[in-house]
Design a protein around this nucleic acid. Structure first.
Lengths: 185, 185
DNA sequence: GTCTATAATTTGATAGAC
DNA sequence: GTCTATCAAATTATAGAC
């Protein structure tokens, strides 16, 4: 039986937590080393450069999110939507953190281009899933556009966090709930 | 006649440009010094600490924005809204930069608390202005909520910038245009 | 895989001359 | 106000022992 939580994953966990609260440029390999209980030189064994760590972290983040999207029950429109919203709400309310890619997107100009490319892929995944949901229930023309939903969820997470009022995200979600329900009725 | 562009303002200009493209943690006083053509020690004369620079920058940013809001023609709802949207659209399309406070909000966890407080004030100003506009035209119950508009504009700027597709912000604005027009009709 | 040790660079900040 | 000079600390990263 393989190690259920190899050091590589432990480091990624620590890096994810750090970036989601302070950003990509405000933590060091030494911070991670302290977090996980090894020396900074050992972090370099797993991730030669900081950019490698960033890219592989967003990779894992996107794959996890992809996995969660796949599990969403889409037997009806509202159920599918509610599960999607819950992914965002839980991240902030339960996980107490902003979306990794919302933070990285704000720092775009200082990121290595490979990393920016991975961030784009995450957003694209969101847009494609929302687009497919609208299409499945034939509401593409009347329903809120995927870009509108994605940008307001990401923006609301970030602003709710900065304002110290997580309910701001919930009220944005509540608006979409109302708009979709009026659509169906 | 006073110097039309004192060094203090020149430094703030450079800092604003830097933060809006790379974030608060990815530029140094030496970067600014190179930008404006003096030495980094001289930057400290104007702003003793980096946090001082950050706070005074957001202060200036918010005052400018406040000034622009005051000038907006509010003789009718759509005109007021269009001018508000134009502030955001021009920042990204013409100015080619993301909102200063959207970037700082994403880095909240690494900012001095005085700075975070200033960022909150900027968002509050936006919310209050939008709320007052909805009230002036008695559409508070039916119209899109201020928090919804603010978060999607800020989120759309950030994501449009990261995706390298500025039109994403324009399509979010276009949605609000439609929703408000349906409201009035 | 993790360690010690260390190199090369950058950072925020200060002292004091002009 | 801006400069030179400098500091202490931090940062990314590498070499080589265990």
């Amino acid at each position: 039986m393989a190690d259920p939580h190899p050091m590589r994953e432990t480091i990624l966990d620590a890096a994810e937590k750090r970036i989601r609260s302070v950003g990509y440029n405000a933590f060091s390999f030494r911070d991670l080393a302290d977090d996980v209980g090894i020396r900074s030189a050992s972090i370099h064994y797993h991730f030669p450069q900081k950019a490698d760590l960033g890219v592989q972290l967003v990779q894992r983040y996107t794959e996890r999110f992809q996995g969660q999207l796949t599990q969403i029950d889409r037997t009806d429109l509202m159920t599918g939507l509610e599960h999607f919203f819950k992914l965002y709400a839980d991240a902030l309310i339960v996980g107490e953190q902003v979306c990794l890619c919302a933070v990285l997107a704000a720092e775009t100009g200082s990121l290595p281009s490979h990393l920016t490319e991975k961030v784009r892929e995450f957003f694209k995944l969101n847009l494609d899933w929302l687009e497919a949901l609208n299409q499945q229930f034939h509401v593409e023309s009347k329903a809120p556009k995927p870009i509108e939903i994605l940008t307001s969820l990401e923006g609301a997470m970030t602003i709710a966090n900065a304002m110290g009022d997580k309910s701001l995200l919930l009220s944005v979600i509540e608006q979409y709930r109302g708009r979709y329900e009026r659509l169906i009725a």
